[in-house]
Structure formats: structure tokens, C-alpha cells
């Protein structure tokens, strides 16, 4: 059995760890709240732009944009994968990567090739060592990313789509359901498919486009894709903080359990030492 002093040091070190994890838990909780606010703040834009896109589906533009049309065959697909920059957030990133890999494998079994673009440190170090084609990456966006930080990454993929190097584009991120639940999500960005228009608005009409339909639609659809990616990033940050909060809470609880167990062992060892000492004294006295 370990001696009293050893156990005491061990308890001390676990207590220190517990302090760190509980501090991280609190930090994550407050960051999560801010991230959730930010998530809510981005929603109006994406709702509005989605409405406009849907209106476009109702309208009958003389110009059909390539982003809205399926290609005949898909030879190569692109993925934009969003992860956190830091670890210690439970299985969040790994679960996401696992489901992407499954998807990628299914695609490559069908003979499609895969291009990957990563946002976040964890994704880039994970996909770097896999035999996939990593075409662009962004990392260290911080807790409050700006929408224009993502322009470059998105443009690489859109250019690839425009030039026919990829035939469809997917966005991979964690969806914030609630504090306890985050779900990995694979969303098809391109070709974009707005939902079927409802009947009331489907009579013939069209916008006036200024300067012209092509230019306006180009602009609008690029913004649409960017807003989806931006929202994915913001949502992923909320997920990261929520997941870290839960992970750190578990770690704190586990440390508490460990300390309780060790305390029992320590008490037992101490009691045994005392008993031994007494019996030694008694035996010594009897010998005299």
C-alpha cells in the first residue's frame, strides 16, 4: 500500500487539475452564451437572403444560373470542413471527421474524387495526413470571426466549381441543437436547391434586374454561399464551447470521485499505521 505522504501529494495534484477543469468549464459556459448570441445575430441575414433566393425560384428569370442547376454527372466533389481550433472539447471534432470520412469513402467508392478545404486548426491537421486533396485552409479565426475572413476559402471552392473542377460542394459542420446535443451535419451548398415554391407566389412575374440578371445573380448566390458558410462557422463555435463545457464538467466530476476514493485509501493507510504503532508499543511493553 502506498504511504500516507504519497497519497496526499496525489490528492493535491488531482485537486489542482480539478481547479483548472472547473475554471475552463466556467469560461466555456460564458463563451458559449456569447457564441449563441452571435449565432442569433447572423440569422436575420441568412433568413433574408434565403427568402430572396426562394423568390428567385418563384420568379421566372430569363437567365438560369449554373449554381442552381444540377450537372449531368458528378466526377469530383468538394468539401468545406469546419472544425475548432483547439482541442479539449470532447469528441466534437472526431465525431465530425468520422462522419465526413464515411461520406468521402462512399463518394470515392462511386469513383468520385474529393477536394477538401478546411476551416479550423484541427481539421487542417487531420486532413493533412490523409490522402485527400487539400486545396485551401483557414485557421485561428478566434471566437468572433468576421464574415470577410472566410471570403478567400469560399472563393477557392466557388472558383473550382465555376471552372468545372468540382461538380458539387458540401459544407460540413456541427449543428447546435442545444447545450447537450451537437449534431454533425453535411449540407449540400452547390448546386443550391431552394425548396419548392408554394402555390400562392408561383404566378408569372420577374424582378427588374439592375444592371443585369447575370451580374446580380452571380453576386447574390456568392453571398448566399458565404452566409451559409459563415453561419456554419459561428454555429460550430457555439458547439465547441458547449461541448467543452460538458467535457470539463465531466472531468471536474471525475476528479471529485478520484479524490473521494483516494481520501478513503489515505484514511485507511493512516489508521493501519496507527494500529501498527500501538501494537508495537504494546508488544514492547509486554516484553519488558
Amino acid at each position: 500500500m502506498a504511504s500516507g505522504k504519497e497519497i496526499r501529494t496525489q490528492i493535491g495534484s488531482i485537486k489542482n487539475t480539478q481547479k483548472i477543469t472547473s475554471a475552463m468549464e466556467m469560461v466555456a459556459a460564458s463563451k458559449m452564451r456569447k457564441a449563441q448570441d452571435r449565432m442569433a445575430a447572423t440569422r436575420p441575414y441568412s433568413d433574408k437572403i434565403y427568402n430572396v433566393i426562394q423568390h428567385l425560384a418563384f420568379a421566372h428569370p430569363e437567365y438560369k444560373h449554373p449554381y442552381l442547376q444540377d450537372r449531368e454527372e458528378t466526377k469530383r466533389v468538394g468539401y468545406i470542413i469546419i472544425s475548432s481550433d483547439r482541442g479539449l472539447c470532447g469528441g466534437l471534432n472526431n465525431n465530425l471527421f468520422k462522419s465526413v470520412l464515411k461520406d468521402i469513402r462512399a463518394k470515392s467508392d462511386k469513383g468520385m474524387e474529393v477536394d477538401v478545404c478546411t476551416i479550423g486548426q484541427k481539421a487542417s491537421s487531420f486532413f493533412k495526413r490523409l490522402p485527400v486533396n487539400l486545396v485551401s485552409q483557414t485557421a485561428q479565426l478566434g471566437d468572433a470571426p468576421r464574415a470577410h475572413d472566410l471570403v478567400g476559402t469560399v472563393k477557392v471552392m466557388l472558383d473550382a466549381y465555376n471552372e468545372g473542377r468540382i461538380d458539387s460542394l458540401y459544407l460540413v459542420y456541427n449543428e447546435f441543437v442545444n447545450t447537450m446535443t451537437q449534431e454533425d451535419k453535411i449540407l449540400r451548398l452547390l448546386p443550391a436547391k431552394p425548396e419548392k415554391p408554394s402555390e400562392e407566389l408561383s404566378h408569372h412575374w420577374d424582378y427588374i434586374y439592375e444592371p443585369d440578371a447575370k451580374e446580380v445573380l452571380d453576386n447574390l448566390l456568392v453571398r448566399y454561399i458565404e452566409s451559409l458558410v459563415y453561419q456554419g462557422v459561428v454555429e460550430n463555435i457555439a458547439c465547441e464551447q458547449a461541448s467543452r463545457m460538458i467535457a470539463m464538467k465531466n472531468a471536474t466530476d471525475n476528479a471529485g470521485d478520484l479524490i473521494d476514493d483516494l481520501q478513503l485509501v489515505y484514511n485507511k493507510a493512516r489508521q493501519a499505521a496507527i494500529t501498527q504503532e500501538i501494537s508495537e508499543i504494546v508488544a514492547g511493553a509486554a516484553a519488558v
Binding site: C117, K128, S136, Q137, T138, V151, G152, T153, K155, D159
Partner: peptide, 17 residues
């Protein structure tokens, strides 16, 4: 500006690889 940002993202990937 967009072009430059795209180029930078690409270079990041190349550098990482």
C-alpha cells in the same frame, strides 16, 4: 481583394502541406 484572399487561403494549404 477577393482574389487576394483566395490566393492566401490556397497558399496556407500549400504551406501546411
Amino acid at each position: 481583394v477577393d482574389e487576394a484572399a483566395a490566393l492566401q487561403a490556397k497558399q496556407e494549404a500549400e504551406r501546411a502541406l
